[in-house]
Simulated scan of single mutants.
Amino acid sequence: MRHAAPESASDSPSASPLDTTPAHALGEFIRAHRERLTPAAVGLSPGPRRRTPGLRREEVAQLCGVSPTWYTWIEQGRPVSASADALARIAVALQLSRAERAYLFELAAQRDPAEPDQANATDAPATLLRTVQLVDAPAYVLDRQWTALAWNAHAADLFTGWLDAGNDRNLLRFTFTEPLARELIVDWETRARRLAAEFRADSIRHLNDAPTRALIDSLIAASDEFARFWASQDVFEREGGRREFNHPRHGRVAYDQITFKPAHREDLKLVVLVRL
C-alpha cells in the first residue's frame, strides 16, 4: 500500500529525540492528532483525493479561527506565541480528550482556561473528605499547599502536633517549624529534604499563585533548613514507601505510605499509611 507523502520535508520528525524542543514536541503532538481526524468527524466533505492523512492544516486553521500560516508555524515547531485561548480552540477543533487536552497545555506551558480555579480548597469533593473516615488506618487529604483538609482518628493519633486543634495543619510548616516533628519523624533531615523536593515538583503549575508563594516565602523566613533545601533546586516525584515514627505513646512504628490523586481534582491528595 502506498503511504501518503508528508506535506513538506521540513515537517518530518527530528532524526534524534535529543533535538526535540518544547515547541517541536507541541507541533508534533498537534500534527499527529490532526492526521487522525477525518473530515467526516468535523462535518467536512472528504473532497478529492487527499495527499495527507486526516484534515488539512488550512481546515484546522479555519475551524480554530486562526491564520493558516500561524497554524502551520505551530505545527512546524517555530517559536511563535500561542495564547491559552488559541490552544483551547485547537483542542476543540482536534476533538482532544480530557487527558490529551491537559497534555497539550502542559507542552505549551500554558494554563487551560477551561480548568476550574482550584486555588480555593473549600470546594474539595465531599465524598473525598468523607473517605478518610472509612479507612481503618491513618488517612488524610491534602490540598495543593499540602494543608490537611480532612483526617481520621488514626491520623490524629499518629501525627501529634500536626493534626491537633489550634494548628494550621500544613504538613510543610509542621515538618520544618515544629520541634515535635523532629522528634516524631525518624531520620528527619532526609525526610524533610525529600519533602521540600517533592513539593517543588508538585507545585510547579501553581508556583506563582499567591497562597503557594506566601507559604514558600514564610517557610524560607522561618526555617534555615527549608531555605537551604529549597535553594538546592532538588526535584523529586512524590512517592510512597516506608515511613517510620518515634511516637510518644506507641514507640517506634513503621508504615507503608500510599498517595492517591482524584481523577478530576489532581491538586488534592488522599494519603493512607498502612501499618507494617
Rank of each mutant, 00 (worst) to 15 (best):
A156M: 14
L18K: 12
D217F: 09
S97F: 09
I30T: 03
D19V: 07
F199A: 08
I30M: 10
E244H: 06
S232Y: 05
F159K: 04
G77F: 04
K269P: 03
S83L: 01
A148M: 02
W146E: 02
N246R: 14
G54H: 05
D234W: 01
S83P: 08
H247I: 04
K269R: 15
A84L: 12
D117H: 12
R31C: 04
I30S: 00
A86V: 15
V274G: 04
E183I: 01
A25Y: 05
R144T: 10
E266N: 10
A221Y: 01
R56I: 06
R193K: 11
E266D: 15
S97D: 09
Q95T: 07
Y103N: 03
A254E: 07
N152S: 02
F176H: 13
H3G: 02
Q145S: 12
I216D: 00
A201Q: 09
R243Y: 12
P48T: 12
L276I: 03
S67N: 12
L172E: 02
R130T: 13
F176V: 11
T259A: 14
W188D: 10
D19W: 11
A263M: 09
V271C: 11
H250C: 08
I185G: 00
F229Y: 15
A137N: 14
S83C: 12
D168A: 09
V135W: 02
D187G: 01
D164T: 07
T131M: 14
A124P: 07
S16G: 00
V271P: 01
L26Q: 00
G161E: 08
V135Y: 00
I90N: 01
N167Q: 15
R57K: 05
P116N: 03
P138F: 04
H247A: 13
D19M: 12
N152P: 02
T147R: 10
I204Q: 15
D256F: 00
E100P: 05
S8T: 13
R169I: 00
V272W: 03
T160W: 06
S14R: 15
A91W: 09
L96W: 03
V186S: 14
R275L: 13
L276T: 13
Q76D: 00
D136T: 13
T190H: 13
C64Q: 02
E266T: 11
A263H: 03
P17G: 13
P68D: 08
R101Q: 05
R101L: 06
L18E: 15
Q118N: 11
D234H: 08
D234K: 11
P262N: 10
L158N: 04
R144S: 11
W162I: 13
L18Q: 14
A108M: 03
R78Q: 14
Q118E: 12
D164L: 09
A93N: 08
D11G: 06
A214V: 07
E115Y: 10
I30A: 07
N208H: 15
I90D: 07
R57G: 00
R51N: 14
N120W: 07
T38I: 03
A32W: 06
D217N: 09
A109D: 02
S10M: 09
D123I: 06
E59S: 04
R200N: 11
A165W: 01
V66K: 03
L37G: 10
